[in-house]
Design a protein around this nucleic acid. Structure first.
Lengths: 206, 206
DNA sequence: GAATTTTTATACCGATCGGTATAAATATTG
DNA sequence: CAATATTTATACCGATCGGTATAAAAATTC
């Protein structure tokens, strides 16, 4: 949806690659310790001029939204291996905990959750995208939970809507702790304890 | 510890009241929707000049630390009514959920948790104070849990250290959601579900 | 080669930031 | 009243912010 892959046909050839800028911006927003990621710094890091960036993305809001889309498209799909078809609810939860707490990809947290945490200070288009992804994530987890309930290995009396929201929130909480540099073992213990609230009534705790 | 209540004995009398500045700063940091609380804005709100503020608090870090201390001293004590002596673990948890999700004081979250969420961008002295309060909070909850375990109404196999950390984190998470303007009912459902992970093995869920 | 089109680089805009230099204002002390 | 001590108000500092005006550079079209 970058919508500017039109070949210019004539004019000065561009030295700026939107793909490269998005890689830089995504990584910067994602791995930044604090909110100190300015348009200026991204231009310096990507070695482009500000007018080039503004021509391509309009404003900071457009850049952040494009960077989030870039992240969703290129980084997030790696997570969905966790949701293989045959696996039990419990197995999937364990795999999720592993992924969120020890996978190198999540060492700096998750760009989506980081943007969600500062939702109020985002531009309107980026905020809109964050809200869309929140809705889609909850729907995805709700569908997963429904299938596991039908399969019989998720027996909690909690509604799947609440459980889906709870999963999205608790995983995000763990990823934010991870991004803050918290002890991975403590993050893991906390997340496992939180997710145990979704266990069935008579399931034994390992 | 404001340490500047020395009467000047001579010189131009001060029109600036540290107490008033701390009230303004505390409220601003606490109720601010985003990070847009600058020293300039606090001076405008408190109707004082910047040199007066810098003379009293040194720098932004000193002001934030003093505002946090002010909050701990004047606001937080109202919470401890929840931990009356006779109440059960379950009763205390319910009271905590009520307080965190519906009490007017928590409508904008909690200044401590808000500062904790941006711990990395705090000045060294404020960050030190935040860490101290984190440690003290965990210790307080651990002591409470130990007493309830001895009293026999907290039977979870979870260690009290983990449970204490979990309580501090989950209550903070709920307060941050509340500060973000999330639906109080949803925050309440999430927190109740999270705290149910600390219930004993055979306790019935109401 | 001249005209046109597109992107580039540079320099700038006003606003705001945290922090401070300076001097006027207002008190006590002699 | 003069000297001194302290706080005030004002104006300023350099840096950075998001965003843009302007014109040169580099391509195609005529």
């Amino acid at each position: 949806m970058t919508d500017s892959e039109h070949k210019p046909a004539r004019g000065r050839p561009r030295t700026m690659s939107p793909r490269k800028v998005l890689d830089v911006a995504m990584t910067a927003y994602w791995h930044a310790d604090d909110a100190g990621v300015s348009v200026n710094s991204i231009c310096r890091m990507a070695d482009i001029s500000k007018p080039s960036l503004y021509r391509e993305f309009g404003n900071e809001d457009g850049l952040m939204r494009a960077a989030l889309d870039h992240y969703i498209e290129h980084i997030l799909p790696g997570v969905f291996g966790v949701f293989s078809n045959g696996t039990t609810f419990r197995q999937t939860m364990d795999a999720l905990v592993d992924y969120a707490c020890t996978h190198p990809t999540t060492e700096c947290g998750c760009l989506f959750y980081k943007m969600r945490a500062v939702r109020h200070r985002l531009g309107p288009r980026t905020r809109e995208r964050v809200d869309e992804i929140t809705t889609r994530s909850r729907a995805f987890f709700a569908e997963f939970l429904q299938s596991r309930r039908k399969a019989g290995d998720w027996t909690s009396p909690v509604s799947r809507e609440l459980a889906a929201r709870y999963l999205v929130d608790q995983i995000g909480f763990a990823l934010m702790q991870r991004a803050s540099g918290d002890d991975p073992d403590e993050v893991r213990d906390t997340l496992k304890l939180a997710l145990s609230a979704l266990d069935g009534p008579q399931d034994p705790q390992p």
